[in-house]
Design a protein around this nucleic acid. Structure first.
Lengths: 226, 226
DNA sequence: ATGAAGTGTTAATGGAGCGTTAACGTTGTG
DNA sequence: CACAACGTTAACGCTCCATTAACACTTCAT
């Protein structure tokens, strides 16, 4: 999936160079030379992951544009500016820039900074979420998410799912599970484990590729697609 | 309190200029021209909040130094580099740079980028925590923290504390609280509100400046010190 | 000064949610 | 075929939470 970048730059030459360079580098780019047009078209733009905005534009300055965008969508901004004083002003603003670059700017440097920002954003989003097939598992939130459905799961369900997903494609011994999660191994706790396996199977029933297999007499093996 | 910056730069002229400029700008700066010395002295450095590191140094390159620092302390890095290829390499590294700047660099630009990084760091730390006198309140974690004591509080306690802290120094009407948090106003819910006020008073009893005052016949007014 | 209304505090109560256990069914192996 | 192992569903008992009860204290009006 290609990252989608919004570019708002009134210098047509620079705008074209940057757009083409970013596209060549693998990004999807929507470019407006007029910030008012950008505002008008905000509703139709999907999945913008970064906005590159020129600070000095006649119709509207880049700061005001970034505020309008911020009201709709929480995305990072990279400002293009010819004046160091503008950068100082950016820092004073509550919305804060994710980065800035002085004009005239080299496309190579812009690309590197774009990648840096996106990398930071991705790290922030994913750090608490584990993909299990078509689902997301958020251990610290005790949640499993499938499309727009969020299942809140219990502490024991969470612990068991963590242990199983850490041993994807591997058989985990029943005795081992019981001693790790329950502290001991007895008949009734084993039955309790079976109940929890049934529960987890139910949450994940909508993706057939996700399997919670029993290895009879031994334990369980999950098969979560990568 | 001044932010403390670690500077590792083998060019003595540049190192001196940057150190003095940053100190003049209000930072505390510890400068090493030799990365090996920096490593030796890591244990004695306290409260480093940002490391500015030159990539190309003869005794040890800046990437290796940043790895060593990372093992001890989770702080942001700003790399000084003369080669664009070095930056590409930074992006490929798992540790990731918080920023970088090309040499020869202007002290003004360095300062601005330093401020940007520190601002981002501060925002990240504080965004989920509200100071109430000597306490921290973490609404999303249902927690109140005082020194090393963490109180887990209930959902209702959390909602009430959010509402009161949003109206610090202002009287909030009982009827209004009840309708916002309970959806209706009746005698018994009012008694329930009184119970919750007692509970909150108990959590915050160790800071005398924090007050939960009654305005008889009207409602409550909290006085949380700034 | 007194009585009533309003609020503070502590503890009992009832309901919800959780993990455990029971009960019945299905599967696999000897 | 018989039995052990596991799957599934629901009942049970415990804990925790918000609500409610009970008593005490404070404030205000007469």
């Amino acid at each position: 999936m290609r990252n989608h970048i919004l570019l708002v730059e009134d210098d047509l030459d620079l705008g074209l160079v940057l757009k083409q360079y970013l596209q060549f580098s693998g990004f999807e780019v929507t470019w407006f030379s007029n910030p008012l047009e950008a505002v008008e078209n905000l509703a139709t733009l999907e999945n913008i992951q970064l906005a590159i905005i020129d600070v000095m534009m006649p119709e509207m300055n880049g700061f005001d544009l970034s505020k309008i965008i911020s009201e709709r969508s929480k995305i990072p901004f990279l400002f293009l500016t010819a004046k160091v004083q503008s950068i100082d002003r950016i820092l004073g603003l509550k919305l804060g820039a994710d980065d800035y670059i002085a004009k005239p700017c080299e496309p190579e440097e812009l690309l590197l900074r774009v990648k840096n920002i996106l990398k930071r954003e991705q790290k922030s989003e994913l750090s608490q979420s584990v993909a299990i097939g078509k689902y997301s598992f958020l251990p610290s939130q005790y949640q499993i998410v499938f499309n727009d459905k969020t299942y809140t799961i219990t502490e024991k369900e969470t612990e068991l799912l963590i242990l199983l997903s850490q041993n994807n494609h591997k058989v985990v011994n029943r005795k081992e599970i019981l001693e790790k999660l329950w502290g001991e191994n007895d008949y009734f706790l084993g039955r309790s484990l079976d109940v929890f396996m049934t529960r987890l199977r139910k949450y994940f029933k909508e993706d057939e590729r996700i399997k919670f297999d029993s290895v009879r007499g031994i334990g369980f093996k999950v098969e979560f697609p990568e």
